[in-house]
Each structure stands twice: as structure tokens, then as C-alpha cells.
Design a protein around this nucleic acid. Sequence first.
RNA 1: GCCGGGGUAGCUCAACGGUAGAGCAAUCGCUUCGUAAGCGAUAGGUUGUGGGUUCGAAUCCCAUCCCCGGCUCCA
Length: 596
Amino acid sequence: MNAAAKAESPASQQSLDALRHSCAHVMAQAVQELFPGTKITIGPAIDNGFYYDFDSPHRFTEEDFPAIEKRMRQIAEGNHPFVGKEISPEESRKYWESRGEPYKVEILDGLKGQTITHYTHGTFTDLCRGGHCENTRAIRHFKLLSVAGAYWRGDEKNPMLQRLYGTAWPSKQELDAYLKMLDEAKARDHRKLGAALDLFSVQDLAGPGLIFWHPKGARMRLIMEDWLKTEALRRGYDLVNTPHIANVELWNTSGHRSFYKDNMFSEIEVEKADYQLKPMNCPFHILIYKNRLRSYRDLPLRLAELGTVYRYERSGVLHGLLRVRGFTQDDAHIFCAPEQIEAEVDGCVDFALEVFKTFGFSRYVMEVSTWDAAKPGDYSGAAEDWERAQKALESVLSKRGIEYSLIKGEAAFYGPKIDVKLIDAIGRPWQLSTVQFDFNLPQKFGLEYVAADGSHRRPLMVHRALYGSIERFFGILIEHYAGSFPLWLAPLQVKVMSLTDEQAPAVRDLVGRLSRAGLRAAADLRPEKINAKIRDAQLEKIPYMVVLGPRDVAAGVLSVRLRDGRQFQGVKEESFVNALSREQDLKRTAPSWEDA
RNA sequence: GCCGGGGUAGCUCAACGGUAGAGCAAUCGCUUCGUAAGCGAUAGGUUGUGGGUUCGAAUCCCAUCCCCGGCUCCA
């Protein structure tokens, strides 16, 4: 049901993929039958489902789905075996040309020298390397989900095809569970919750991809920033601050004006010089490093900043808090000597794990991206640096007993990296932390340090972000907790409500005392029924509600309600404050009320 | 940027060529109430924006901005 479970057993994953890939074939058949003139292209299994890309004169909409699904069902019930057959390239070409399938011919042209196979079920044949279930009757629990555009072969210069997405499962229970997960994901959508909880907004008048943090969101941001800064200082980082714009000469030196040009906002002219908004913080930290002669005694130098960067992202890619045009990275650059890299990488990994634990993420996936050793010319930096860095990345993870996948050839041109994807409460992976070597910029800026023997050497530079960006991390947190944040993050922790006007003074006094005890509390004194006040507080997902009625005031106690619905009468104020203070200090993700 | 779908009151939606409407929220009254919506009244819109077609446009056409689902890209 989730991304992590997917890895549990290669064999079962294989049969799932086979089911989904087969389902894609059946969908292609149904679509071609129902919409004549539709040309087929490719249709693989993907996480949780499948798709097939079509070139069709028909404009597909979701209204077509019932008819397609119905036909798919008929085909599946036809009990057709999937039969694979090896075929000569000439014969295959003849087959696809005669059927007027230009995309299949193009695929065939790309398969020179490989064995060609066709897979057939019933009357439908596809050019396909295989991986099918035995018989169409295995295809029973599926659903078409969406239609979308997709470039032929993923290249935006190619024509746009129409992609139909679907999901398929071995059992009805699994299908239903998956569909329920999709609903759950929709309900957790940070854009929806962000508006409902009044956390942030995007303003048309200001422009797309620019985030406005409202009071409650800003409060949470403050907490996230404070925690991170405190933790960074404790771990030997130095905090710095750098400007938002810089002369284009800086970006020429760094090379961003060439390799990152497409993502930068255009120049701002000031007194005949051109400036540009920063898309990255690295060059600024480098300038601080370079500001004076560095000794090996200065290393490792760890410069950290919550640095706000601006990137021109094409309009179609913006997405809530997860993909924006202005965002703040929790950025750090570590300058170190070669013999220090393993310890520094280990420090980064340790810090990242601390972040996950603190914010309540228990599962994650690590990926090490290395270079393609066959093409050293494609990369910046010396081979020995690459090899040493890659070894350090892997060694740190294996010494910690952390499983990771090694992705060869996936490194950026300037250095190898560890990427961390964390898995949220409903099993979705999110790209978050990154620990990345940079062999390019130290060279471009001519960075040096004086070694013990008096020689000048080039430091290694590690770029590291843990939240990734505060905006994205916030978006993920909202979805992870579905807006029910743990006490230490909740913008408002306690709502104290009066039963009748009589208790207004008592409510005000209590809010004052809670605030002085370091808790974020507010009063609800509206002349509403207690039901209405409770409902409003529940919708705000406030962790603790306190009701003061005549009985409570007379007895000098509190009536406490948790947002999970539990209620406690006759609670002593002191134990309430103590329990909440403890829960807040421990940054617990679940209420610690019961052990109060 | 590309393909497709959308923008109507603060929010969720209705009206789909013939006088823009409801619920919630807001404001004002009444209600003083024991754990998820008390009652009433008032106010709120050049239907994203700009053009066009028409006797008449939220509705049809064109352009543009923004949003949504994807593609490509990515913190």
C-alpha cells in the first residue's frame, strides 16, 4: 500500500508490475477499439499503477473512463493468455507499418541488435519486452484515475501525447485501500489545509510561487528556524547572513550565468552595473571563506544560513509550498581538508537523522548518486577527489548500518551526493535532505588554505541542506500531520473557553497564566454555545481545549479536552501546565497527557 | 514552457443567451448555554482581466493572468 512496502519483496513487486503492465495492454486494446484512429506508444507499470500514452484524434476526458473500464472488463473476462513471441526486426517492422503505428516503428528502430518480442492477448498485440501475468483474468481490480498530457519519449520538443493513468491490484481490498489512501492524501493537501488553518497564502497580485506566511504559519516557521539554528550552533556551525542580490560578475565567476541561467531572474540595473537575485547561497559563503587567508587550523569551517533564494521556475511547475519561485534554504557549506570529509559527512547524516526524529518521521530512504566513471570528461573535479568522496558517502552510511541505494551516473557534474527521501504518515516519499560535494566552485573561486607544511591547498566543499527549503518542509509537515501538529509546533496550543459570560474573568486570568508559563494560549469568550466553541477549536486542530464553567471555577479546576476527543474533568491547573510543558520540551509527536 | 480541465460573495457551490442565488463565515440584535454548528436581521458580486459577437453575455468567440491534473524540470 505504500512506497516502503513496495521494496519488501522483489518477487511480489514483480508480479504486481506484471499485473499492472498487463492492465495497460488491456487498456490500450479497449481504447483502440472504442476510439478508432488512436495510435499506441508505450504503457509501463509505475508505482501503484500503470499508464499508457496515446496519440489520438479523440480528446480524452474522465467521462470516457466508464466506457473504457467496461470494455477492459469484458476483455479481461475473455480469459486470454498473454503469449510472448520472438520475432525478427524485419517482420516486426512490417507488422507495425501495416497497422499504421509509427511510434512502434520508431521504438523498433531504437532496439537495433536486441531481441524483439511481441506479446499478444486475444486480438491485441504489442511490441513489448514482456513481464505479464499469465492470463487476462488476473486483471479484475483496477480503476482509471486521470488523463494528462505527456511528451513522446519525455522530450518537450516532441509531440504531446495523451496519457491515461490507472491503478490495478490483486485484490479488491488492496484496491480499496489504495483509493482510500488517495482520498486521504487529498484531505491532507497542504494547499487546502494551509488555507483552512490560515497558515499561508499565495497572492495573485504579488505573483505566482511567492509565499505569504500568515501569523500562524509564521509562528511555526519561527519554531522551525529557532530549533535548527540552535541545533546548528551546538554542532559547530557558524551562522552567517548574506545578501539577496549580487553583481552579475559574481554569477559569472561561479558559472551560474552559464549553467544555471535558465533558472535565474533577469538582471536589475543599478548605476550601470547589473545585479541578479541569488538562486543559490554557495557563492556567498565562498566569498566569506575567501575573505581572508585560511589555515588548516580553521578547518572544517561550517557556514550555515537560512538563505532566501529566487529561482525562475516555469509557470506550469509551481505547486503550493512544494515548488515555488522564492524560498529559504537551510543551507550550509562545509569547507574541509580531504582527511576530514568522512567525519563531516557523518556529521551531516547525524544532523539529518536528528531532524527526522524531531519532526516525527520514522522512515526514510537514502540514495547515493555517483559519477559515471566511464566519462570523467563530463564532470568537474579530479578523479581522486570523486573516488574519495564517493567512498566517504558510502562508508558513512554503511558504518551506521543505514541501507541505501547506489545510483551510478546520477551525480551532478560538480560532485557526488546523498539524497534523503523521507516517508510520510501515509507512505509517500518526499525528497528532502541532501549532502553534496562540490568540486567545481572551490576551483572557480580559487579557494585555498595553508596546510601544516606551509603549502597552499584546495579545500573540499560539502553543500548540505536538511529541511531542503523551509517552504517545502512546512508543506510536507502539514501533510504528514494532516494539520494536527504536535504541541511544540502547534501555532496555538490551548484554547480556553467560557461556558457563559460569568467565567470571562477566570478565562482571561487562566490564559495569562498559561502564557507566562510559556504556552501559546488564547481565549474564546464569544456568546456562543459551548458546542460551537468546541467545534471551532476542533476545526482549528488545537491540541488542548479548556472549558471553564461555573462548576470548574467554583472548584478551582479545569475541564480539559484533547483534539482526539478525550475529556478530563477536575484537572488541577498545575498538573495541566506541567504535562503540557513536558510534552512541549520533549517535542513529542503524540500527546503525553495520559502519563501526567 | 507544453497538453487537458477550471476561475461566480472571504470559503464551498448554484444559475450555463433573458432581472446573479444558497449555505457557511462577517456585522448587528436576541439567546447564557457543560464538550463538533442556538435563532433572527443586515451587509457582501462591473461573474479573474481586456476585447469581440448579440436587442441582451457569468453563459458564445479571441486574447491575457492565475489555479488544478500531468509532462519536462526541481529545494
